[in-house]
């Protein structure tokens, strides 16, 4: 009896650790636009609330919780933030460096003065927030607080500079994703980007994906 119980417990633990490299099988029947990272980054507003299929190299996965990952296009200066929906749950750190195909809806968060005021209150109360999410784990509280205050100040400056009194953050909420077949190193194949676009990441641009995702 005890063996059976332990066996079931072990099986549950193994299943839980298996990650989520599978794709949701449901199809919604909605129209989905196939886009490149560069196309979306060029005009994210155009794709807001649209379902898109996008591929790119994962250059970062938040290791604490796996609730965000970033994929980059031909220019590593900018990357798109991807968040998982409830069905995907989390992204595993092992995805870093993988070529992934993501299906999801482009989301927009408009940040104005009222939003930042509210955010400041939340930060003072110790709450985390998508717009100001950082990777400060590992730093001391005071340092993290200073960093958050600096981010709030930067947000206010950005709003002041904007013509419409707000600026937007964009990300894609993924409903499906899959890891593309990976060329093995031994085969020596060059990496092929979606739609045969040359994508060797050898252009040497400074890269900062930013903690806030892509912003306009």
């Amino acid at each position: 009896m005890i063996r059976k119980i332990l066996g079931v417990a072990a099986l549950i633990a193994i299943l839980a650790s298996c990650g989520n490299k599978t794709q949701k099988e449901e199809t919604t029947g909605k129209e989905v636009t196939k886009v490149t990272v560069d196309e979306v980054l060029a005009d994210m507003q155009k794709y807001v609330d649209q379902e898109v299929i996008i591929s790119g190299i994962v250059n970062h996965v938040c290791s604490h919780g796996g609730k965000r990952m970033f994929i980059m296009g031909s220019n590593p200066d900018a990357a798109i933030k991807i968040t998982p929906d409830d069905a995907i749950g989390v992204f595993e750190k092992e995805l870093e460096g993988s070529d992934v195909l993501v299906t999801g809806i482009v989301k927009e968060l408009r940040i104005d003065e009222a939003y930042v005021d509210n955010l400041e209150k939340e930060v003072a109360e110790g709450a985390d927030n998508e717009a100001i999410h950082d990777h400060s784990a590992g730093t001391h509280d005071e340092e993290a607080e200073n960093e958050k205050q600096a981010q709030l100040d930067a947000m206010r400056n950005k709003i002041a500079e904007s013509e419409q009194g707000y600026y937007s953050q964009f990300w894609i909420e993924a409903s499906e994703f899959e890891v593309k077949d990976h060329d093995h190193a031994e085969e020596g194949h060059e990496h092929e980007h979606m739609e045969d676009e040359d994508h060797s990441h050898e252009e040497g641009h400074d890269h900062e994906h930013g903690e806030e995702g892509h912003t306009h």
Binding site: S98, A185, H201, E202, E203, D206
Partner: peptide
């Protein structure tokens, strides 16, 4: 430093590791 060159360096200096991708995050 193209893909095959990076793989070659990896084989020499970190032979136990398997290449996935590479890029230049900054100069």
């Amino acid at each position: 430093l193209n893909r095959s060159e990076v793989i070659s360096l990896l084989k020499t200096y970190a032979p136990q590791e398997t290449y996935k991708n590479h890029y230049f995050p900054e100069d």
